[in-house]
Write a protein that binds this DNA or RNA. Structure first.
Lengths: 194, 194
DNA sequence: TTTTTAATTGACCGGTCAATCAATAAAAAA
DNA sequence: TTTTTTATTGATTGACCGGTCAATTAAAAA
């Protein structure tokens, strides 16, 4: 029962954050979405901060699992790079409420040591996943810089998407990042794309 | 007296947001930093929201003024692009508290119509400034996509910087964006840079 | 069946915050 | 000088929130 309740509360947290656009959500709101009382949320997670951390950990774990799976099927360094990019814009990840949650956690991580640590894990994983492909394609320093740029592009496209309505356009975002990669590698680029 | 007080309160708002990393700051804190009471802050700006909006308007106006000035001295389309990039990472703009304030406003804009409108102005200006250079360098559709990518890069580098300590490294950020532009334009790139 | 543990919640509490208000002082206008 | 306007603030208020607590119910263990 406890695992079910915990998961329900975490999902409710993401949903509430997604709707509010920030961590400015009450325990009452979250608990209500999960169909329980706020006291139960406290019972399972303790302080609100703990619930937020657990939620972010969950997002991180999901992203990581997706990345690992995608990388497992990549057959070349170039495919690894594309796999990393694609995962961040997958249907599962590039959702309005997940986007909003990441952004909200990003802000909070500035001042919360615990969340900052988690975000560092995210950043390090993204970096090493990109490097696992890039370092076999270009020189060391260039790979480092490319990884930094790709990561910044991904983050930038995420926050820009947070301000738009409707369904996220993953294909467009991926194309922009892939364009950068193609240009960096000297690959022919899709000048005319649909 | 009123203009002085208003400006002091706006500066205090940026300072408080910069330190807190979010809009989670009290009127008392802001007023205290400006050396007045919170009642005076209300007197001049009304609700807290109004003060936040005025602050964001101020940031936007400053960025816009800087951009106009820089663009006025650009002598070619290519220089215009570089000028736009450089302004966003100028000593004046690329400051920890300004970075934090922009990020905080970005988040809040998701749910505040007023702030959203202001952020749209930011986005539109950035876009048209970039296009004023790009459209003379590459085809229409490509210019559009490049403008989108550059803007995303700028935003991405901003939020990533928000999570780092110490003095912001503008040169490094500019280099990453310029790298992208150079690659896109088929210019020789600085493979070895200091 | 009884006892122990887990799950659950409405009521409650103290603290915080935005915003108001009455009063006072200072500055400007008449 | 008097009146009007501007500037200022300490005190206050109601709303809201995270978190606790006692009591009850349900499930598991003995």
């Amino acid at each position: 029962m406890e695992p079910l309740r915990r998961r329900a509360l975490i999902d409710a947290t993401i949903s509430a954050i997604g709707e509010r656009g920030s961590l400015d959500v009450t325990m009452s709101e979250i608990a209500g979405r999960a169909g329980v009382s706020s006291a139960l949320a406290h019972h399972y997670f303790g302080a609100k901060d703990e619930l937020l951390q657990a939620t972010m950990r969950h997002l991180l774990a999901e992203l990581n699992a997706d990345a690992r799976q995608a990388l497992a099927t990549a057959r070349s360094p170039r495919e690894r790079v594309s796999a990393v990019i694609a995962i961040n814009f997958s249907d599962k990840q590039f959702q309005p409420e997940t986007i909003a949650a990441w952004l909200a956690f990003y802000v909070e991580a500035q001042k919360s040591q615990a969340l900052r640590r988690l975000l560092r894990i995210y950043a390090r994983r993204l970096h090493s996943n990109l490097m696992s492909g890039l370092s076999a394609l270009v020189t060391g320093a260039e790979a480092e810089r490319a990884a930094e740029a790709i990561a910044a592009l991904i983050d930038g496209l995420y926050i820009r998407r947070a301000l738009k309505d409707g369904t996220p356009n993953a294909a467009s975002a991926i194309a922009i990042v892939e364009d950068y990669v193609a240009g960096m590698l000297g690959e022919p680029r899709s000048r005319e794309s649909n």
